[in-house]
Nucleic acid binder design. Structure first.
Lengths: 211, 211
DNA sequence: TCAAACTTGTTTATTTTATGACAAGCGATG
DNA sequence: CATCGCTTGTCATAAAATAAACAAGTTTGA
């Protein structure tokens, strides 16, 4: 119902888009359409917020009719830019690093983990799901040869910023940081800090204040 | 400088409190005081936001003087309710579950993981850092005997809601959910959904739109 | 002692996000 | 065909979060 298709998408709407996409992709195949209130109820938000979110994408859906699940999925993949393959590497093959490398759930978004790097010589040479663990010194060449654009940091916190610098020096454009240290990067690099302690501390606060 | 000490704390301020606390606890011992601009610069926010956040806690700090690191830490621990031990269990000993169980980083907040549960008989009986992996059937009794208040869900997404229900049925008051399914719980239970895909999808969006 | 360069506390304004209200459209039922 | 109950699109308003501005205090050094 609108023309330009270019409306500003609020920051928080993007986060919800990710949740919507996840939810829709987990849905059984037999579900071909869904209403805003059904979906919002399960996700735990208000239907009007969901419709407002979709409104920023321009008019799809028609009044009186539910949303088509497959169309929603493809539209959201488009917006979130996960229609084509994006290659990743991971640095730090500790417990969390290994767990993420073993997790195959990102592949359905076209996110492909190509290599794991560590400084521990006892880990170098091993494989995780056919993904080789390599020495950190070989990272630069690997990034260029394999057109890697996303780096995942799973090092101890005191190596996080150094690792981040190393990644950006070698041309990485997106960093997903799981260490407990907030890392900073140049303006042309996107950083997503995912400090797990924040989640549990927030839970602790809410446990003692909301109830 | 204020009296009642009771001001509303915005939701997002709480999340930043968690980041502040993390940052301060990672600091070397020799750093005994810090200014809002130093701290904000490293964390990647504006100094005025940091001061505004602390303002909600009532007046501490004095004009002209930097913040005392130890005082900040203890005040933040107080607000986030991590001054005393809180006991946790974890359900689902897959890769991510094992990684979290191996991660000792939460203990410094008094968060103590007491048991891991799984349905896989090949895992039951093993230990992770002295934490026993037990059969899911024994969970209810374990919760009551050990005064567990936090449950961590690391199951596949199609078992997440069932696990959540099981936990709440046995009196768990806080749930930290790492599955890709958003789980819902009764009003007297706090849920923190930590779907990892949201982070990477947000990163993908920003990579393709902010740059 | 005085001034300059810092610091934080607090209020006010701006921006961003969430909610509410309602028109408009579809589909089934009688 | 008319109506009732459902649906989404859209705009206006309310609420929340962020940023700016500045007063007021401390420290340092000339």
């Amino acid at each position: 119902m609108n023309d330009g298709d270019f409306r500003h998408i609020p920051q928080f709407t993007v986060l919800r888009f990710a949740r919507y996409l996840n939810f829709l992709m987990n849905l059984p195949d037999v579900v071909s359409e869904i209403s805003s209130s059904e979906m919002a109820g399960i996700i735990g938000i208000k239907p009007t917020q969901l419709r407002q979110d979709f409104f920023t994408l321009g008019g799809f859906g028609r009044q009186g009719k539910k949303y088509n699940v497959q169309f929603l999925i493809s539209r959201l993949r488009e917006v979130l830019a996960v229609t084509e393959e994006q290659r990743m590497i991971l640095i730090g093959a500790g417990h969390l690093g290994q767990a993420l490398a073993n997790y195959a759930g990102f592949e359905r978004f076209g996110l492909s983990l190509r290599g794991v790097f560590d400084v521990n010589p006892r880990l170098v040479g091993l494989k995780i799901r056919d993904i080789p663990i390599m020495d950190l010194d070989s990272m630069g060449a690997f990034i260029q040869r394999n057109e890697i654009i996303i780096g995942i940091i799973c090092t101890p916190h005191d190596y996080a910023q150094t690792t981040c610098d190393l990644l950006t020096d070698h041309g990485i454009k997106a960093i997903w940081n799981f260490s407990s240290e907030h890392v900073l990067a140049p303006d042309d690099v996107v950083v997503q800090n995912e400090n797990l302690s924040v989640g549990i501390l927030n839970l602790s606060y809410r446990l003692n204040n909301e109830l």
